[in-house]
Design a protein around this nucleic acid. Structure first.
Length: 488
RNA sequence: GGCCCGGUCGUCUAGAGGCCUAGGACAUCAGGUUCUCAUCCUGAAGAUCAGGGGUUCGAAUCCCCUCCGGGCUACCA
């Protein structure tokens, strides 16, 4: 590998990225950065019928969010194939001139008819040159074009011997040439097909390693033959195994394969997503699991890439996200949360950040280790801002407690707390534990009813936290409400 | 159908002929810490290495066959 490493990620702007696309980009990025190479983005918009408005802009934002920002190419953020039509045409015409490609005038209906005929005869469907365009003299073809006939340009695939492909993950793969037919390079609309465009661009962009999904492996013979016909050196090939859905089928929307940007909306951290994705189909060879992007760059090695496809497991992603959230400092978590709701333009939460800015650090700290996603924050802290109402009073008793016990506990609490001056967490804890002892109450029997009274919930942050954050007035108010609820 | 690729606990994986009575992580279950939940700690269960033949003193690792899964077989990428 003496050549400089230059790689590219080449999506077609036909929709939003799912995790599989993001992982291909990640591996490609890691490979480039590990070797100190360059990482470009090339937009493959050669299928004019499938273009999706705004897809490229959203992709750029997403890549930035993931931390996979591509390098500038000729000063531009990406290369766009529709800007390079002349280049493909030039290559195709060179091949025509050399007799390595030809004009084909078969219509769509004719081709469809050919295929159905072959299918009926149990023959493998392929372009069989039944109209003889492969051998049509160039002058005749040009005459038809001049007459306005619609045409495509096909590559004359060699029909003898085999094409040997080397993939860095799988090693040598062999294909018999007579099984590949004369594929289309230039479509009737003048746009190139993937095969031609990829070969031309990767050559012109001096891409050292072609990285892409596994689904391309069986097309490589076309690309190899094209390189040879054009007289160009072959790049190295790396075909990543695909990501499967939980049903072991293709990643589909039905099985949690949402567009990647929805993971952002759902409160996942990009570093968690990156770490999670990196470990699907790649292993460092050690028992370590948690890697930052920088660590991944250092450790990434093609040797650690898996040959087999992997199933995507959402619960594992949750674990990574929880890990990363817990590793954030309170300050970092706080700014992440604010940023998250700010981007979401969530007026309710943003207002709370504003109005409760003094208490916010304590509020966040109280739920920090309980969050799986940033989105969870709203739900976990709701009770701080909105007093519980009309909850089931049967929630109030701790295990083995009666409603009468609860009344007594609340009464004791009210009278004790009313006289407490220092309403800090530590003071509250010290004091209440002592109150418990004085009244012969187990801590749980004192704190459970209190917590339910304050939050209306069976699970919440520590009662001392809740008390301290709510403050004396609000706490006593909520306890009084619980007492009223019990009485009714 | 044909051609390619793949197949280790439910999931992600370690494993390049003896270190494997197959290791780790997620999930699960049990216990501990604890006012609840969560965190954290400890432990358990979980894989006859898809199946069958070889090769070898010895195979998850090498070879062959079968089965299963996936991809390609477009004027889609």
């Amino acid at each position: 590998m003496s050549k400089p490493i230059r790689v590219r990620i080449a999506p077609s702007p036909t929709g939003d990225w799912h995790l599989g696309n993001a992982r291909t980009a990640l591996f490609t990025y890691l490979f480039a950065r590990h070797h100190g190479g360059e990482f470009f983005l090339r937009v493959e918009d050669t299928d004019q019928g499938r273009l999706v408005e705004g897809a490229v802009d959203r992709l750029l934002v997403l890549m930035e969010w993931l931390g996979l920002t591509p390098d500038l190419y000729d000063g531009l953020p990406y290369v766009r194939q529709s800007d390079r039509l002349d280049l493909y045409k030039e290559a195709a015409e060179k091949l025509i001139a050399e007799g390595k490609a030809y004009y084909c005038f078969a219509t769509g209906e004719e081709l469809a008819h050919m295929r159905s005929e072959q299918e009926a005869a149990k023959l493998p469907p392929r372009y069989d040159n039944r109209w003889g365009y492969r051998d049509l003299p160039l002058e005749q073809a040009q005459a038809r074009i001049a007459a306005g006939d619609s045409y495509v340009i096909r590559f004359k695939m060699p029909q003898e011997g085999e094409t040997v492909v080397v993939d860095l993950i799988r090693g040598e793969v062999r294909f018999a040439n007579n099984l590949t037919d004369d594929f289309v390079m230039i479509k009737a609309d003048g746009f190139p097909t993937y095969h031609l465009a990829h070969v031309v661009d990767d050559h012109l962009m001096e891409i050292s390693h072609v990285t892409r999904g596994d689904e391309w492996l069986s097309s490589v013979p076309k690309h190899v033959q094209l390189h040879e016909a054009l007289g160009w050196d072959l790049p190295e090939y790396i075909h990543f195994p695909v990501i499967l859905g939980p049903d072991k089928g293709k990643l589909s929307k039905r099985h949690g394969a949402k567009p990647v940007f929805e993971y952002e909306i759902d409160g996942y951290l990009p570093e968690a997503l990156i770490n999670f994705l990196a470990l699907i189909g790649w292993s460092s060879g050690t028992d370590e699991e948690l890697f930052s992007l920088d660590e991944l760059i250092k450790k990434f090695d093609v040797k650690g890439l898996q040959k087999s496809p992997a199933v995507f497991d959402a619960t594992r992603l949750d674990w990574f996200n929880g890990q990363y959230i817990r590793r954030l400092s309170s300050r970092e978590l706080s700014s992440r949360l604010y940023e998250y709701y700010d981007v979401r333009k969530d007026p309710v939460i943003l207002e709370r950040f504003d109005e409760y800015s003094e208490k916010m650090p304590a509020i966040i700290a109280s739920v920090h280790e309980r969050l799986v996603t940033l989105k969870d924050f709203a739900e976990h802290t709701y009770f701080y801002f909105v007093a519980p109402e009309a909850y089931d009073p049967n929630l109030l008793p701790a295990k083995k407690q009666t409603l009468e016990d609860v009344s007594r506990v609340l009464e004791i609490s009210v009278s004790a707390l009313s006289s407490l001056e220092d309403w800090s967490h530590d003071s509250l804890e010290q004091y209440l534990r002592q109150v418990g002892v004085e009244h012969d109450l187990k801590v749980g029997d004192l704190l459970w009813p209190l917590r339910v009274a304050l939050t209306g919930l069976p699970a919440s942050p520590s009662t001392f936290d809740v008390l301290a954050i709510l403050g004396k007035d609000e706490s006593l108010k909520r306890i009084a409400y619980a007492q009223a609820l019990l009485a009714s």
